[in-house]
Design a binder for these strands. Structure first.
Lengths: 213, 213
DNA sequence: GTGTGTGAAACTTTTCACAGCA
DNA sequence: TGCTGTGAAAAGTTTCACACAC
């Protein structure tokens, strides 16, 4: 019942999604079946779930509804979290329109940009506000998550302001390593890093192509 | 000189970016300085770089240009890779317009969608093609990386077709766990998974807020 | 029989600490 | 003296394999 390993935390959302995608007549699932859907080893899955204290039934499997509820609780999805998106370029707009947020209890409570031409325009029904209002809006609306979708050059300043205004987590899409105080959780989503990792592994495949065919 | 640990591979692109962001008059950098920029422990950085065989100079540090070149080589950036984007919704459009790709040797050689209303339209100068042409285009244009930006329901089929047509890596933005043959590298970029991970850690902070202030 | 929960083993990754080179 | 390169220790993660509950 201590703190759950980071590797496990990162997989819980995947398990949850697999459970949500199950046909509704399925009320029970074994670790083998779920592991297969999530593409992980079943012993790993069982160990992950054991950290939740969520008991399965030996010889049967896990109760789907109960498991969903347990994972949701552990991921803090019982409540809603208020989110601000900073930067409304292509990516910011894609984020603002992403269905998967509201569904899972993440409410977008603010869209900010510093381009005067964009301010006042609407994206999916929400008006873009000036960056100057970011600090007060975060504080007043009790926003706790900031998504940074600005160019790299602006990202650190935005992060500083988000933190100062009271945000406790940041999801950073800008291609830069942010520096934040201890206790602020930052996750980075970086397209070109991902591509470069792929590129490394592709290069390694070089000669031993499909020789074992 | 054996295969580099996965954890190291995932950090190399970050080091490379930090090096690229350095002012041009900086010709030499110590592990402490670079580790600070990349926000990692300096022993870890040195160990990571030691896998490249890239020698620094004791008492001095690493030659910036040489290090850049070594990391680029290891990441397969000496050549260009041809990329197809499948799905041209908000996210697909954001990807198509992302500057960081072309810069680093990833050339977008095809945009595909199955919506007849979108086919023939242009995004950043490139015409959207029908999904039916995906297979032949991948093969003919020697595309080796596919970016999947479709809804979840379409993603697996698109992945199957990409693989059959000869792609060797996939970057998947659809919220689903793809199943692909051995030897095909897949990386997932999943916004709602990232948010749920943040949510978990935010929840854990609960009471011991700013008590040590 | 079936499938969970979990110790113990194997492996990976991180961090420490320092010898040794410029 | 300053900073790299790296063994060795520590920490974290995965996998195995099986006792045991249903």
């Amino acid at each position: 019942m201590q703190s759950i390993p980071a590797a496990t935390v990162a997989r819980l959302p995947v398990y949850l999604r697999c459970l949500n995608d199950l046909p509704s007549e399925k009320t029970t699932i074994s670790s083998d079946e779920l592991a297969d859907l999530a593409r992980v080893n079943s012993a790993k899955l069982r160990k992950d779930l054991s950290y939740l204290g969520s008991y399965g039934t030996r010889g049967v499997g896990y109760d789907v509804d109960h498991l969903r509820a347990q994972i949701g609780l552990e991921l803090g999805l019982a409540r809603t979290w208020r989110v601000a998106i900073v930067g409304t370029g292509n990516l910011g707009r894609a984020l603002a329109g992403y269905k998967g947020f509201t569904d899972r209890g993440f409410d977008i409570e603010g869209l900010f940009d510093d381009d005067p031409k964009k301010i006042g325009k609407k994206i999916v029904g929400r008006t873009i506000e000036p960056l100057a209002d970011l600090d007060s809006a975060v504080a007043e609306r009790k926003i706790s998550i900031g998504l940074i979708a600005t160019p790299a050059a602006a990202a650190q300043e935005v992060a500083d302001r988000l933190v100062a205004a009271g945000v406790s987590s940041i999801l950073n899409f800008a291609p830069i390593v942010l520096s934040v105080p201890d206790g602020i959780e930052v996750r980075r989503v970086d397209l070109s890093v991902e591509l470069q990792i792929l590129s490394h592994y592709m290069q390694r495949q070089l000669l031993p192509r499909d020789m074992a065919n």
